[in-house]
Write a protein that binds this DNA or RNA. Sequence first.
DNA 1: TATGCTATCTTGAACGGTCAAGAAAGAGGA
DNA 2: TCCTCTTTCTTGACCGTTCAAGATAGCATA
Lengths: 374, 374
Amino acid sequence: MTDENQDTLSKRATLRDVAKAAGVSHTTVSNAFARPDQLSAPLRERVLTTARALGYAGPNPAARSLRTGRHGAIGLAFSEDLPYAFSDPTAIGFLQGVAEACRGLRTNLLLIATRTLAAADDPAGPDGVQAVRDAAVDGFVLYSLARDSPVVASVSARGLPHVAVDQPRLPGVPYVGIDDEGGARRAAEHLLAFGHRRFAILSLKLGSDGRDGVASPGRVAAATYSVPASRLAGYRAALARGGVDPAAVPVLECALNDERRAHDQLLPLLGTKQRPTAILAMSDRLALGAVAAARAAGLTVPGDLSVVGFDDVAGDGLESSFLTTVRQPHAEKGRLALQMLAAPGGPQQRVLPAELVVRASSARVTAPQSADGT
Amino acid sequence: MTDENQDTLSKRATLRDVAKAAGVSHTTVSNAFARPDQLSAPLRERVLTTARALGYAGPNPAARSLRTGRHGAIGLAFSEDLPYAFSDPTAIGFLQGVAEACRGLRTNLLLIATRTLAAADDPAGPDGVQAVRDAAVDGFVLYSLARDSPVVASVSARGLPHVAVDQPRLPGVPYVGIDDEGGARRAAEHLLAFGHRRFAILSLKLGSDGRDGVASPGRVAAATYSVPASRLAGYRAALARGGVDPAAVPVLECALNDERRAHDQLLPLLGTKQRPTAILAMSDRLALGAVAAARAAGLTVPGDLSVVGFDDVAGDGLESSFLTTVRQPHAEKGRLALQMLAAPGGPQQRVLPAELVVRASSARVTAPQSADGT
DNA sequence: TATGCTATCTTGAACGGTCAAGAAAGAGGA
DNA sequence: TCCTCTTTCTTGACCGTTCAAGATAGCATA
């Protein structure tokens, strides 16, 4: 804020100002900063000294980028509100991997403030689109975006390399994801093996409209987020093979990956006579909500209700070390995504494993039961 | 990756290419994108159509920034490894506030991959310095940096507006923080009021060298991080006033805000005859480590050991709703920091309150005791 | 002595936008 | 009818770098 060491207060010093002051050409000054081997050491020292004296802050990044075409940053586009992303443990784990890879590549990370629910009065179109257009980056990572997200189109229009993670595959675009369907299938098989016949599914959001509640078959079919769609497919495949009609299993959609929502959605269902004995939750957060709902309904876990989550998030708290869940390598996805961006030519698809981790929140069903609860 | 809709495969289309194709001047094309009111609607439509046809991705961000001097992004410089920052709940809370404010300001967020422990062989100096120099941003937020961090100097050299958060104050630089000293004082007073006389302090890192262990008086005096220093001062002021000699209270420094480190450091101390009956922890993470250590030592909390944390982080898990702690408004700090960046001229310092929240991890000391444990 | 080579520095031209100023044409008022 | 104002579009300069190519000198080689 203070301009103490700025000789010409009117304007910021440039390469040429430094050059003039040091009695050398502008290119020499440029080289002093960027290519030390191109000039003698004493001259370089002199140039850097006069630069400091003039308050020259180093080459203007915009000018450099314009000339070189490189920015030294990659952009990360989220589906969620950015603030929300920081509260989601899954996203955080992914971010951690991305950040780690960035450090290795000596590149900065530009978080793009995108919002799927566009403000209608916005002349520049949905929020994220302009942000993507203006992003000074060398490539993009698309994380968990909806199939129809305008941000996807916007990124694709930029013509920069990009990678899609945990979202619908795009033709010709490298992809990183996990075996969502397989992981979900194993979760359901596990509960079926324990004799469960009455299920409920706690689903992550299927569409961008922020709707909560029981998802109709139509809504399920039209899901624009691939991760919940795949997990749902996995659950259902296993259920069908196990002799349980998937169509009869309620899908409770939670617009946010939130314990409270899961709790609120599930609680009424637990009061019914035909209450489920097992919950398939698409995230650990939702699973913890189910546990809370069970407690509120006077049921024990896993005595009265078995719960299987997804993600194997945290590991710090007590709760998570109790949850049966499906483990996925969060940070690894981030690392791989950046690797694919940085070194194209490798495999264009990486599907990482999702393995079932059996802990204490699932158990054999107490009384034998038929699908209709008799 | 695919160049399907690029007419001239050799090079990316520019404003002028579009202008030529549409039969208008380059300025008109520029206006079509940036200033819709400067040209008639039908012409604008025509221009945008030909732009799309040529695969023109919109104005080059670097060129635009060069001319306008604005970047539409603010830089966030951390003290920690970026990946680590994503695992620290305090940092996450702050980031959430920053991200929220960014969305409001329609600005992107550039995370700067800085590392305090410089790689010695790095010609460009410590990691973060170059990253700061190259950052295409309109301002910086400095979060939790050490007094002597090269990143601070680097940011200051850029001559852009910046705000310091949770770190040593810089002359002339706006500051956002909390009442660390007061919060710490209240934590200690709370335990003193419960009759505790034998304390141990679990401290966040005091220096950038990654050292763990009992901090010597010299090390404490030379602390380069202001937050731990202030909290320590608060603890000690209260202890002294309560008749406990602060110099006799061990300060266990944890290089990382980590349950395990706190656990490992504290455990041996709990085995001694003169074991502390109360722990002052500078974060909830460290406090949870203390709880774990107590459990490992066969002690109960708060029966045998009282623990007071700091941060009031999460609120989700079971553990945190049990911890007596000092609450601070994490996200609010982020919001304020960006507000001060965006609208200079307001107050240059904001010190937010830190209030004691009494829960179940602290209690009256069981047996009366003197400071020497007899 | 002529020649080539290396090390060091300079020259001039991009990079791709935005902006200030100006030109042309049509509308409105005296 | 003439003048002014507004709308709409154009012209040319400039933002601050990096890069390719060239100039100069020093030195070794033939």
